[in-house]
Amino acid sequence: MLSCSLCPAVRRMFRRFIPLLLLSLLSLVLIVGRGWCADGAVSASDDDLYVDLYADEPGFDGIADPLQSVNRAVFWLNDKCYVYLLKPVARGFRVVPEPVRSGLARMFDNLKSPLRSVSCLLQWKVKQSGIELTRLVVNSTLGLAGFYDPAQSWWELRKQDEDLGQVLGAYGVGYGCYLVLPVLGSSSLRDGVALLPQMYTDPLHWTLNSEAMLITKTTEVVNGVSLDRDTYESIIREQLDPYLFIRDAYLQNRAGKVDD
């Protein structure tokens, strides 16, 4: 009840402060981002004979992680949330037939089309932006609000995976540093900041009140985890240091996406 009465006030406050917050954080990323370097790895370039086959992978430079102790704490917290809350709920959600859950995942993904279209346009990828826009129109109508993906299955119009973090990356903004966000998981200063304006590209943001929004977002996450094949569990089970493994995977994945 308390949250209900607070909500409008908090929202108003957020609206007023977001531009300021964004600007200051962005300048921080720009100023500090380049200064921090990877945590002291031995440089391969000192050695003439050493040929590194894997050096041309994107994201080779590593990422600054000055908040590692805080990040590890949040990582631990997220792990407990996942294992004891999210995963059991998701397992229960599997009573819903798989085709329905896949359709639901596509519906949620369809809502991200505006974001992808805008992000393409901001990088002057005009054709890709058009593809996303077409996908949005086709899948929202013929695809029954995105439950099906006729744009891809009939016309080979594939999803263009772009977001505002990648836009910043494409303009040369560095990661700043690695962040583990509560509930949301791996992020960086750059990509975390990009999440704020990204909120406004979500059609649900303009149509639903905050309670309904919370319910849909929770459904989206639970549904997503119910479709996943224990990716997280296998990393936890197999890796010597899952925190570092996931950090590096995030970094490589983002670098690869910015590069495309």
Binding site: V42, F60, L240, L244, D248, Q252, N253, G256
Partner: peptide
Amino acid sequence: EEVSLVRNYRSSYANI
């Protein structure tokens, strides 16, 4: 998904 398996081991192994 853009993540090199081999490269991924490097940072955790280097740390240890």
